[in-house]
Computed example of a mutant assay.
Amino acid sequence: MESTTRTKSPQVVEGWTGRLFEDFAIGDIYYHPFGKTVTQADNQNFTLTTQNVSKTHVDANFGAKTEFGRPLVNSTFTLALVTGQSTIDLSMNVFANMGWDEVRMPAPVYEGDTIYSRSKVLALRESKSRPNLGLVTVATEGYNQDGTVVITYRRTFMVYKKGFLPSVESSRPDESSLPAVEGSR
């Protein structure tokens, strides 16, 4: 198979930089692109790091004797994971999270489950106290590999408006001080 070459001059291509307030519309649905298979290490590390002493998360022998027959994944891990999955689509340019409401866990998550998520934009409004920001409210669901919804919640966050996002260039090193990209001369 022959390789094709592009005749266009090489250029620096900026990566995805996230949405700003004006990029959202009520009713938009985002299927977040990354799934995550939850491991025993994820569950135990998160549970122990947060000093949660529930045996149902870290004691497999205890978990085996419950009606579930195995350990349950820490529900706050599930909340953190699904919130994290949504960041690429919703809140890369967040100023602050304002809150999570109506958090529900309709089905358990087990070690070995793969979690996916999606969000729907419910409300938008400009900030009254910060003219450079807008508030976005979304409904988010996390679901497992079988399509079973395992978490639902509403989240409101403040996000920058166009023209007000702090410069990315000012937060990274001067590119002239970086070594050449491998393969270039």
Rank of each mutant, 00 (worst) to 15 (best):
104 R>L: 05
122 L>M: 12
127 S>H: 05
19 R>F: 03
73 V>W: 01
47 T>Q: 02
61 N>G: 10
173 P>I: 14
130 R>V: 09
178 L>E: 15
109 V>Y: 00
44 Q>I: 14
64 A>W: 06
164 F>L: 10
119 S>F: 07
132 N>K: 12
152 T>P: 04
13 V>N: 07
158 M>F: 11
143 Y>L: 04
52 N>I: 08
83 T>R: 00
115 I>C: 00
115 I>L: 11
23 D>Q: 05
117 S>G: 13
49 T>V: 08
36 K>F: 06
83 T>W: 03
138 V>W: 00
62 F>H: 12
124 L>R: 11
98 M>Q: 08
142 G>S: 10
24 F>I: 06
86 S>D: 08
139 A>M: 13
127 S>P: 05
131 P>K: 14
108 P>M: 05
16 W>E: 10
128 K>I: 08
107 A>W: 02
9 S>E: 15
41 A>H: 05
161 K>F: 11
28 D>I: 03
176 S>D: 15
184 S>I: 10
140 T>M: 09
62 F>L: 03
78 T>P: 01
19 R>H: 11
125 R>S: 11
139 A>H: 13
131 P>G: 13
135 L>Y: 09
174 D>A: 15
122 L>P: 04
139 A>E: 14
13 V>E: 09
59 D>T: 06
150 V>K: 00
9 S>Q: 13
92 M>D: 06
160 Y>H: 15
